[in-house]
């Protein structure tokens, strides 16, 4: 499971807004320079980003393993043609570059998630998105982080209970229905209890957030983000 891990790396010390800017710049540059040369430069940059987060490339790839089948299937399916000569490798060049581009963008986002605590991300969002929508997103996102582990545990208990009662012998639709019904009931139950507690404690639109401050480490990163965005239009 990909989550934040405390640390003292350069990436940990950066402002979350800087890190978001680098990610956006990187993605824009990758989509506009999907060529062997462009992607080689971005591979080096990905290496730098992972090093700044003290994250090994193998660990980073392990975190995005769910996407690997899609990344391989695209080029493979493109190379196959119905009829002689059956396999045309040149057809797979474009999709292979595109898959590699997706891999790089995913690796850079792994570095962000590993090095940025939730409260900082929330503060960044509330400063970037103005007014009530930003606050609603900030509050909502913070609540999603808190609800997620307990709901995963609820669903896993429901599945264990189902197995213990030979529920695995039932039809797939019934198993889906039973597990999801438990999930929805628990989600509403937890929401109702939290809502009561929030009302009792004067739930406000303007909570105290951690102060975000740009440090000298952010300067090169912001220059990099700006450079990447400019490169997109070259």
């Amino acid at each position: 499971m990909l989550t934040y891990e405390p640390g003292t790396s350069v990436a940990h010390r950066l402002d979350p807004r800087t890190k978001l800017a680098v990610q956006i710049g990187f993605a824009l540059a990758a989509f506009s320079h999907t060529t062997p040369r462009g992607l080689s430069l971005l591979t080096v940059l990905t290496g730098v980003v992972l090093a700044a987060a003290t994250l090994s490339p193998f660990d980073a790839v392990r975190e995005i393993r769910y996407a690997l089948p899609f990344l391989f299937a695209g080029p493979l399916l493109s190379a196959v043609v119905l009829g002689s000569p059956w396999i045309v490798p040149t057809e797979a060049i474009g999709p292979t570059l595109a898959s590699y581009r997706a891999l790089l963008v995913l690796l850079v986002s792994v570095a962000y998630v590993r090095t940025t605590p939730v409260r900082e991300s929330r503060a960044a969002i509330q400063r970037v998105v103005p007014g009530r929508p930003g606050r609603l997103l900030g509050v909502g996102v913070a609540l999603v982080f808190r609800f997620l582990p307990v709901l995963i545990a609820d669903l896993s208990r429901a599945r264990s209970a189902l197995r213990a009662r030979l529920g695995t012998e039932r039809r797939l639709i019934d198993r889906m229905r039973i597990v999801t019904t438990t999930g929805v009931r628990r989600a509403f139950g937890r929401a109702d209890r939290l809502e009561m507690a929030l009302r009792a404690r004067c739930f406000a639109w303007n909570p105290t957030l951690p102060a975000l401050k740009l440090s000298h480490w952010d300067v090169p990163s912001l220059v990099l983000a700006t450079g990447l965005v400019c490169w997109t239009f070259v």
Binding site: A102, V105, Y112, R122, I125, V141
Partner: peptide, 27 residues
């Protein structure tokens, strides 16, 4: 909220993935 939380690091996408890159990835 699910998308924003996932983008900011909640491991909510398929296979426990998270991050901005997933939104620009194959899924």
């Amino acid at each position: 909220l699910y998308l924003v939380a996932g983008t900011l690091g909640a491991p909510v996408f398929a296979g426990g993935a998270a991050g901005f890159g997933v939104l620009l990835g194959p899924t």
